[in-house]
Design a protein around this nucleic acid. Sequence first.
DNA 1: CCGCTTATTTTGAGTAAGTCAAGATAAGCA
DNA 2: TGCTTATCTTGACTTACTCAAAATAAGCGG
Lengths: 142, 142
Amino acid sequence: MDFSTRLRDHGLRVTRQRLAVLGVVDSHPHSSADAVAEKVRRDLPELSLQSVYNVLNDLTAFDLLRRFSPPHSPALYETRVGDNHHHAVCTRCGRVEDVDCAVGHAPCLTPSDSHGMTIQIADVLYQGICKDCAERSPGPAG
Amino acid sequence: MDFSTRLRDHGLRVTRQRLAVLGVVDSHPHSSADAVAEKVRRDLPELSLQSVYNVLNDLTAFDLLRRFSPPHSPALYETRVGDNHHHAVCTRCGRVEDVDCAVGHAPCLTPSDSHGMTIQIADVLYQGICKDCAERSPGPAG
DNA sequence: CCGCTTATTTTGAGTAAGTCAAGATAAGCA
DNA sequence: TGCTTATCTTGACTTACTCAAAATAAGCGG
Ligand SMILES: [Mn+2]
Ligand SMILES: [Mn+2]
Ligand SMILES: [Zn+2]
Ligand SMILES: [Zn+2]
């Protein structure tokens, strides 16, 4: 189902700004608001940064986008929603990779004890050193 | 082992500021920098917020503290390090609870495929509705 | 297609969280 | 006790993001 249809299905208006943001996030997963703005402006130079934030927030609320917040980084966005996949972040260069759920189907949604909380999302963030950074300087973490 | 010893073991100086911050974080796990500053100032009124950031950053780097960054929240700190435990955050009230690793001992450290990255930390962040918030208004997520 | 309604975007200001750098202070050692 | 330099404080600054009001334009009824 294309983005226009999905927007309409939620009662949201189909605007150039929303379609452009969705297109950029779709082709550049794990982009920050700034990065999205910069790329969208190649097609839509007059796009305001505020609109990028508006669009990202609205579409995240309606689950057309997914947001996650790695440490030392602005929030990142992707169109891959609903599959509870995880992320690995390189602590040296910030590189982000998708990681499928470790132990079969969404096991992370059933924690051993959650103090009576009803869990809806499990965001798993792996932190480590990516291959390139390890080759560049094989020392310990940093 | 007490905090002074652990500081010295890393070649770090033992200062009132560091001990006070460690004490507050220890008795108030999952505190933000602001919250730490406010509580430390009951004993050490002249403590600067910049020093709180300095101390939290330095001690996190030496693994005397652990930091994590829930969405829509400043970074939170705790003294419970090295056991790879996880966190559940209420999306309504922000409450944070510790959650032991779901599937035995640190399974989260071995993701199915990490694109060649050497994983060192797995931060699992469960998001949901806490018991109190659910009782207050039992509707769907918020 | 036209005009209306109101969601969306833009503009401009403002805030929260945290960093950077220079000088003052004090921890640890001789 | 005095020296060295890590640490702390002060003050300015940045980044990431929010808030509110005015301008624009999407979608609908005619
Ligand atoms: Mn992803
Ligand atoms: Mn904890
Ligand atoms: Zn890397
Ligand atoms: Zn709650």
